[in-house]
């Protein structure tokens, strides 16, 4: 089948897609967007998290055909071509939240969504929001630091702009 949708603001089209393929496979193997990761492919680890019409989903659990005509935003679409890295991306680097980095794309999208909903989350809010994203390297402490840092930077920037 043919699947046409919007990926990171760009209309894309994939031909000869098998009905059993996931959105994750479509992104990674057909569209050259391997940023979303394939750590469990059963919705447990969150490494493949992308926005689907603005809501974070595990792209491994979405059939490719389900995205027909819809909007997908992946980790590759978080950074702005003009302003550089998203504050969440920069905070993950600065706080030491990236080790092997395999969980990072999913955590970035999930954190991006959290801070859009709740700019100043409590520690428990952060833990709840990120509890579907497994990380095996960091012990999560630096990830907590990164989310707090991104929150603080975003809030101080928006205060300045106001």
């Amino acid at each position: 089948m043919r699947v046409t949708f919007n990926a990171n603001g760009r209309q894309v089209e994939a031909d000869d897609v098998w009905e059993g393929e996931s959105l994750l496979f479509l992104l990674r193997e057909r569209l050259g967007l391997p940023g979303s990761k394939n750590a469990c492919e059963q919705g447990e680890c969150g490494s493949c998290t992308v926005y689907l019409d603005g809501a974070p989903v595990c792209s491994c659990l979405v059939a490719a055909g389900q995205v027909q005509g819809r909007e997908v935003r992946t980790v590759e679409g978080l950074a702005d071509a003009e302003t550089g890295l998203d504050p969440v991306q920069q905070a993950f680097i600065d706080a030491g939240a990236v080790q092997c980095g395999f969980c990072t794309p999913g955590l970035l999208v999930q954190t991006h969504d959290l801070l859009a909903r709740e700019p100043q989350p409590s520690d428990n809010d952060i833990r709840e929001a990120l509890s579907g994203n497994l990380c095996r390297c960091t012990g999560y402490e630096k990830i907590m630091d990164a989310v707090r840092l991104a929150s603080a930077r975003t809030c101080s920037t928006s205060e300045v702009s106001q």
């Binding site: 059993g20 059963q42 595990c58 659990l61 059939a63 490719a64």
Partner: peptide
């Protein structure tokens, strides 16, 4: 099958 199981 993972790919058929719907959104998160």
């Amino acid at each position: 099958h993972a790919a058929l199981a719907g959104a998160r």
